[in-house]
Amino acid sequence: MLATIMHAAGDVRIETVPDATLVEPTDVLVRVVSACICGSDLWPYNLRPADAPPQSMGHEAIGIVEAIGADVQRLKPGDFVIMPFAHADGSCAFCREGLPTSCVHVGFFGNRGLNGAQAEALRIPFADGTLYPLDPTARNLVGDAGLLASLLTLSDVMGTGHHAARVARVTPGVTAAVIGDGAVGLCGVIAAKRLGAERIILLGRHDDRIALAREFGATDIVRERGEAGIARVRELTGGFGAHAILECVGTGDAMATAIGIARPGGAIGRVGVPHYEAIPLAGPAFYSNITVGGGPAPVRTYIDELLPDILEGRIQPGRVFDQVTDLAGVPQGYRDMNERRAIKVMVRP
């Protein structure tokens, strides 16, 4: 089968690899209907050492179950499924508490020897606890490109933006600030609007993304960065800052900005994969009673809540996909996202 393999920074190739097969009795095989390139994939695309082993890429997919292991109970061949970016057994204490990304058997697709989802097919461990099967009639939706795109966001970016909003305690009437205008940040705007934020400030600099953010519900745009961006947000909020901060980037500068624009008593939901050593919590963060939380989003837990709004058209997170390619076009898709010519690239094997 064909799959996306990253060999080093900037070196992404489509290669023929051994077919995915069942290994454990709890596995299923999924034929990928749609996958995508994630903003987090750009970190290794820019920073992966040349001597690192090749890595199978992709952790977001929807697809069709093709084969099941002997111990699989909830799934059958032909099921149309959403594949969250992490696998989990669905039965441990953390899964029962709604945190499958802390499952005692957790793993992340594209790592630890697992096939990535930017491929024709892949093996799903602990499939009963990992995959989210859609209604049997949903297979008929494969031809609805807009709906298909929105369903794909439930495997990561919509659930991750929602997680940021939940951790940041977005409730009706608050002012929310979203740091980052990538796909997760844009989905964070959707989430903040959906949860009732009265004012949503997007910190971003790209015109196409800003336009989409405004359609999703952003009320104010801050293009400045660093201290200038902090000052601008405080100016917009009467000097107090925002109640809820959605940090969707993962850099030290983004976290410093998040703390700088948080209102006393406010909360920061961080979902950008952290590329910094420590959170600067001393000083203002402590004396302003700012709460900082977040981490890998338990996206499977959120599907029950978000799916009806997608199926009924109340939210359309699939609009973050502004480019579609086949597997052969994936290397160019990485270049386009890295150079900000695309927000998020969908892959149709």
Rank of each mutant, 00 (worst) to 15 (best):
V17Q: 05
F321L: 07
L236Q: 05
V178E: 11
F240V: 14
P331S: 03
V12K: 00
G58R: 12
L281E: 11
I68V: 15
D326C: 03
V178A: 05
F126K: 02
D11W: 05
L141G: 01
R139E: 09
I37A: 06
R166Q: 15
I68N: 01
L307S: 08
L311A: 08
E66L: 10
G98S: 11
D11R: 15
P136C: 08
K344S: 02
T26N: 09
T325Q: 07
P125T: 03
S56W: 08
R300S: 06
P172E: 12
P284H: 07
A8R: 13
R31K: 13
G116N: 11
V347D: 02
L75D: 00
R232Q: 14
V299D: 05
Y132H: 09
G180T: 02
G10I: 01
L131W: 00
L148S: 14
G110C: 04
R48M: 15
I201L: 05
D208S: 14
L281T: 11
L114E: 14
D181A: 09
V299T: 12
N111K: 10
T21I: 12
A117S: 15
V273F: 13
A192D: 02
V81G: 02
G143I: 02
T21R: 14
V65A: 01
E247Y: 03
C103V: 10
L114A: 12
A267T: 11
A197G: 10
V345T: 14
C36W: 07
P84I: 05
A297F: 11
L203W: 01
V104N: 13
H59I: 04
I179A: 07
C95I: 10
D89Y: 04
C103I: 07
E312C: 09
F80I: 04
D144R: 06
G266R: 05
K193T: 11
A211S: 11
F108M: 15
R234G: 08
G293T: 10
N115R: 15
I259H: 12
I82Y: 03
A61C: 09
D128M: 02
C92W: 07
L2H: 13
D89W: 04
P25V: 03
P18Y: 00
R199C: 04
D71V: 00
T325M: 13
N289E: 15
K76D: 06
M346L: 13
D207E: 15
V170T: 12
G272Q: 03
A176H: 10
E277T: 12
I221W: 01
